[in-house]
Amino acid sequence: MSGPEFNAEPGPGVPVPVALVGAGRVAHAAHLRELRDLRHIIRLAAVVEADPDRIAAVRGFPGVAACADLDEAVAAGARAVLVCTPWWTHRDVVLACLARGLPVLCEKPVSLDPAEIEELAAAERAAGVPVAAAYMKRHDPVVGLFVEHCRKRLARGRRLVVDIHDPNAPHQVAHLLPFDPPPFGPQPPPAEEALARALGPAADAGQREAYARGLGGSLIHQVNLVHAVLDDGPGLYGTLLHADRWAGGDTVSCRWRPADGLVVDATHARLPEHRRYREILEFTAEDSVATLTLPSPYARDEAATLHVETWDAATGLGTRHTHTAEPGNTGFRRQLVAWARTLHSDAAPPLPGLADVRRDTLTLHEAASRLG
């Protein structure tokens, strides 16, 4: 790593001191509880948060500094930054980190504006330190098996389906937060302004809402997984067949055809009365079906499950294999471990970065622009 503020990089075996910017829902529901168990790898040195109640809720981290800004966090010893602020603030926060030479792990969506992503990429190149995107599903080993299976059979693939039933309601995370979760409601004015800039004046309120939530707020994870399957082949951008929304915009669905023989369908349905999150990805090839089931991203007592069925037309014999991982070792946890390795060593495998963000965002930006 390089950069004026990262020259004091700790050596192997020494926890990386990081700052958390934003101590809201995702920080408490996911990152902080993992950081408590990973103190031998990552040390929370500072929290940058304007809300005093949220700062007070950061318990169990001895010596953590409550800071008003990044300069105070650097003075407290932070040498990298985990960004968990609302998505429409990410551009300013990440640019401020890069200006100080601080590597970043930024929660998704990093941005929903392609122009902002290009700006961040230019700043990243100038700073010489990386911006990693928090695609935590990519760090689940069962998800990795699914991606590997699909890649091997891509030439024989016919359909890849994503189906998400999402309560997207306060009860999903209420038990994980030391404060009342924010109610589901309209986008705040700064978010509306950011969406208007991203989609332009031709987009209506329904398109902006669907882009912020069902598309950019959720399906961006799964589009990233589809792009991981497609690897260096054609991406989804420019291959959109249709995009639609219904149920007052609470459900969105898209279909792409990235190759003549392959169709990708993705649907996100907000169903607040459902008590559990449900996510299924299914890849159908000429000789197999792979079905990946993922629990709520906030669940620690469940794990991803992959069923792979294959058959031989000549013999009529088939096989079924099931893969799962131990509960508790979540994608959030594995992501933090992988990030810490990149901060310790340039030789560590890089995390998904702004090139991934650009491809995923362009894909869903196009879908939002064409929503029926």
Rank of each mutant, 00 (worst) to 15 (best):
F6R: 13
A313Y: 12
R59A: 06
A75I: 00
R358T: 14
M136R: 05
P130D: 14
G24E: 03
W311I: 04
H242M: 01
E326M: 10
R197G: 03
E326Q: 14
L364R: 02
P130Y: 05
N224E: 09
L292P: 11
G214R: 00
I117Y: 13
C84A: 07
H365N: 07
D360S: 12
G261M: 12
D113Y: 13
L306I: 04
I220R: 11
G214N: 03
H165Y: 07
F332M: 08
E124I: 11
L362W: 13
D232N: 10
A313N: 11
A243F: 01
C254N: 00
T293K: 14
L195G: 12
E72D: 12
L271I: 10
Y237M: 11
P327W: 03
D346G: 14
L199M: 05
R208I: 03
E116P: 02
V16I: 15
L20T: 03
Y298I: 01
T361C: 14
T324I: 12
Y237A: 15
V337R: 11
A367L: 00
A266G: 04
K152G: 05
R358Q: 13
P183M: 05
R33N: 10
H139F: 00
A132T: 05
V16Q: 08
D180K: 00
R320V: 11
V64K: 01
R278Q: 15
D346I: 07
G248Y: 00
V173T: 11
W256E: 08
G214M: 03
N224H: 09
G316Q: 03
M136K: 01
G144A: 00
A132V: 11
D250C: 04
F332L: 08
H344F: 01
N168I: 02
L176Y: 10
T322K: 10
C106A: 15
P62W: 04
A304P: 09
G217Y: 04
E5Y: 07
Q207V: 02
A96W: 07
E209H: 15
E192V: 12
L35F: 02
A115E: 15
L294S: 09
A66Q: 04
V264A: 03
V142F: 02
E192R: 15
V94F: 12
D244E: 11
R25D: 02
P349A: 07
A202E: 15
D53S: 08
A212E: 01
A196W: 05
G353D: 13
R79G: 03
S253M: 10
A266R: 09
G261V: 01
D244K: 05
E5A: 15
D92R: 15
G331L: 06
G217T: 06
A198P: 05
H242P: 06
L317Q: 13
A299H: 05
G216Q: 08
A259Q: 15
E309L: 11
F184H: 11
A347H: 10
V74Q: 01
L354N: 14
P109R: 07
T291P: 02
S2Y: 12
R358L: 12
L177Q: 00
